[in-house]
Design a protein around this nucleic acid. Structure first.
Lengths: 342, 342
DNA sequence: CTACACTATTAACACGTGTTAGTAACACGA
DNA sequence: TCGTGTTACTAACACGTGTTAATAGTGTAG
């Protein structure tokens, strides 16, 4: 019942040549003279037997797995509610498939980071890795720089010389906040996307403050909250803003996902968007435009971010030395209906 | 600079034993008597050298990759907008990690299915696979039954004897529709989640019809539309329902994601939810409860579906023969605010 | 002293491929 | 005849592990 495994030896036997020749022909190795006739024979034999090379053996022999890993340093809960994952995966898959690579997904628990990074790489199941939204304080990450492994970070890591692909979070947040100011708002609250230890959260708040300061408005820490990725935390932080006693006519929520929860809190408080309060999002997740009202937000090119990271990684592994270690993609303000002119 | 690779031979040398002994000790192979003393020596040596076995070589020797594949037969576009992917991944990762397996993501283009399935399996990069929402007419899938590979389908495949994990889509849709009837609706439209060739879409429409018939209401094909997974298609189908000239007081949308678009269309038409039209969703994606109004829907246990599929697959590979080939998980009606009592 | 069992360990092979060094076969000019 | 290339291959090793059959070493009964 279990079909006999077809090896290159079988192909060689059928074609009446050596196993070496089979390898040379099928891999189209240059620098070897092989008759067109025998080439045909080998290809025919391979076709007839339905020969599919054993990828594991190839990996062992060539010392490259032809696979890259997407490594996430998050809890299962956060993975489950990450609205970007599908886009990122889509971007990665497309590139990876085009280059005949495989994609491995790995999540490392914050506790075991030290060991897990090493195992992943040294076990040689992957040739390189793409690191997703690492924490600023990720010490284990530092060690990666000492390891001879190709790594591209999605999201920037301060003081690191790893390759990275990211948007300019600070500038994007600044532009978003500036827009609110431009249409007349001066009392603007802020809910960031994640705890301040995450670089993206930190930078977005900085951009928010930049815009305020540039217009002569003094930022107040009491009007800033740090959410925790998911809608529920947005709901909670918004209520927390209410109870702070501060007045505001607009709120910049540095994550559409978090904004979903924030909006629910506004609704619960009987406030209307944008009539009573304007809300500015960040990310432009697929549901933002179908929200009620359609959410004004900053488009984060998630898919392209992923595919560019992947291309960069492949370049790196191919031996080339890309000029810009830190690739920065553009964001775009997407004006919809959730912000009102004052 | 590139650190010398540490092999089991190095460990053996340092410990003063043979490579075989190293393997026996580190893998804790039973049936061999080895002094506790040498065990210690080997473990110490391994620790000191930071020995991490080469997974590829292990895979080749043991003939199992210790990896499973998540295989999706979808276009990149549909992957990017799939709201379940994060939950599924989360469920899979949790189980996979617990069993020291790796997770490989693969998407196969509908055109090349025949060959790709085979390559995936025969190349032996994975020991088994989980198939996501296959199409009813997927002929290549049929061949999998002939191959000696462990496969678990998420979503049911008619007339197949592959193992599967799914919910009872028909029953769930019936209960959802029944709820609408129970609160007084009789003119109920339906927008399914996907083209009819997808089993889940087909079954959900059947359930919808079941409920109508059971209450003496004649289903009309003019009140049924088939969407295409994403919000945009929901938007389009809802407008299509308007132009059909049929009147309805409620609509059952067999996908929350599609419902997002449908709601936008209702809004554009100046209809209020649930005052003018009640809307029932399906899936309970994370954003459903933060929608305005919070969406009444049917909870699909996506994460559990994934983890159960994974557990089933692991059982299968371990050689056990599970009693129920087709596991069916329960759904639950989640009543929120998008449906009004007539 | 011999035969035998038992213990702790290892030599040797297998897994399926890529790749380098080498070799027969043949032609060709001197 | 001999040396020199050239062509078209192939034998043999490497990759790093798991696993089986065998082997020294040691006590024990006959």
């Amino acid at each position: 019942m279990p079909k006999k495994r077809v090896t290159s030896q079988d192909v060689a036997d059928l074609a009446g040549v050596s196993r070496t020749t089979v390898s040379l022909v099928l891999n189209d190795v240059k620098g070897f003279k092989i008759t067109e006739q025998t080439r045909q024979r080998v290809r025919h034999a391979a076709e007839k037997l339905g020969y599919i090379p054993n990828a594991t053996a190839q990996a062992l022999a060539t010392r490259r797995a032809k696979a890259i890993g997407l490594v996430m340093t998050r809890s299962p809960h956060h993975i489950a509610s990450d609205p970007f994952l599908p886009q990122i995966l889509s971007g990665l898959l497309e590139v990876v498939k085009g280059h005949q690579f495989r994609l491995l997904i790995e999540s490392v628990e914050p506790e075991h980071q030290d060991r897990e990074y090493l195992e992943l790489v040294r076990a040689k199941h992957i040739d390189g890795m793409i690191l997703l939204t690492p924490r600023i304080d990720d010490t284990a990450l530092r060690r990666l720089e000492e390891i001879d492994t190709f790594t591209v970070v999605m999201g920037k890591l301060a003081d690191s010389n790893l390759y990275s692909v990211d948007v300019d979070n600070q500038l994007a947040a600044r532009k978003a906040t500036q827009y609110l100011i431009d249409i007349g708002h001066t009392r603007i609250a802020c809910i960031s996307n994640a705890p301040a230890s995450f670089s993206s959260a930190h930078e977005r708040v900085l951009g928010y403050k930049d815009a305020l300061v540039a217009s002569g408005i003094a930022p107040e820490d009491e009007m800033i909250r740090y959410a925790d990725f998911d809608p529920q935390s947005g709901f909670d932080r918004m209520k927390s803003l209410f109870t702070s006693g501060r007045e505001f006519t607009a709120v910049f929520v540095a994550s559409d996902n978090v904004a979903m929860g924030a909006k629910a809190a506004l609704r619960e408080a009987g406030l209307r968007i944008p009539d009573d309060i304007s809300i500015m999002g960040f990310d432009d997740i697929p549901w933002a435009q179908y929200s009620d009202p359609p959410l004004t937000t900053v488009r984060l090119p998630a898919r392209e971010l992923a595919s560019r990271a992947c291309l960069l990684l492949l370049d790196l592994m191919r031996g080339s030395d890309p000029v810009d270690k830190n690739l920065v993609l553009d964001t775009e303000l997407v004006v919809r209906k959730s912000c009102r002119k004052l």
